[in-house]
Design a protein around this nucleic acid. Structure first.
Length: 197
DNA sequence: TGCACGATTCTCT
DNA sequence: GAGAATCGTGCAA
């Protein structure tokens, strides 16, 4: 069962928590890779100063945030890396998104290892927002594509119980003033693939 | 047109 | 724990 647009049309915090445990699938020409989502972060918009959409800022880069829910927002960062987000929220046209920060590798580990470099250990394959993009083969060519059908989609899986979800502050947003202290980062307790414990 | 910087990662100390 | 790598983007000029 692939998650449909209605799943992403819930409150963005709810979507962030419920995405934990779900399965990200990418069918590429090199083969299919899948991973269980173990860490997410919420970016609200326009009020959230940590978000690209802060202040209602709308540019060519973040244009997709203002569009349909359940669509991928992939951006290039630090001149080297990519980050993968999913547009979500219960208000149409409000620029909010969920950043996928880490996965637990499932199918296609050989392909992921090949993409990341042969020396990489399994534990370091997907434990960070840019690492998981490299392992899953996600780049700007996946920007703006819908996640409700292959080749890139998210499959249904049982909800992770609230008591196994850790809520903490977001990473790498020290510039955002009071917004940096929002506990909008969620991960599965004791999972070894979480980026930072 | 120019320029400072980032929702990161890796390497070296 | 510090510093480098490396360039598209956003905003000032």
């Amino acid at each position: 069962m692939i998650l449909q647009e209605s799943f992403y049309q819930q409150d963005v915090i709810t979507v962030s928590k419920e995405l934990l445990g779900k399965i990200l699938v990418h069918q590429s020409k090199e083969g299919t890779t899948t991973g269980r989502i173990v860490e997410t972060e919420t970016y609200r918009g326009p009020e959230d100063q940590a978000a690209h959409s802060s202040g209602g800022r709308r540019t060519a880069r973040n244009e997709v945030m203002f569009g349909k829910k359940g669509v991928a927002y992939v951006y290039f960062i630090y001149g080297l890396y990519h980050c993968f987000n999913i547009i979500a929220g219960d208000v149409p046209g409000k620029p909010e998104a969920v950043l996928i920060r880490a996965l637990e590798p499932m199918a296609g580990k050989e392909i992921m290892t090949k993409r990341r470099g042969q020396q990489i250990k399994i534990a370091n394959l997907t434990n960070g927002p840019s690492k998981m993009c490299m392992a899953m083969g996600i780049s700007k060519s996946q920007n703006k594509i819908g996640l409700t059908a292959p080749p890139l989609c998210i499959k249904e899986a049982p909800l992770v119980p609230q008591k196994e979800i850790v809520e903490t502050t977001r990473i790498g947003v020290d510039y955002s003033g009071e917004w940096k202290s929002k506990t909008w980062r969620f991960y599965i307790r004791d999972n070894r693939f979480v980026s930072i414990k």
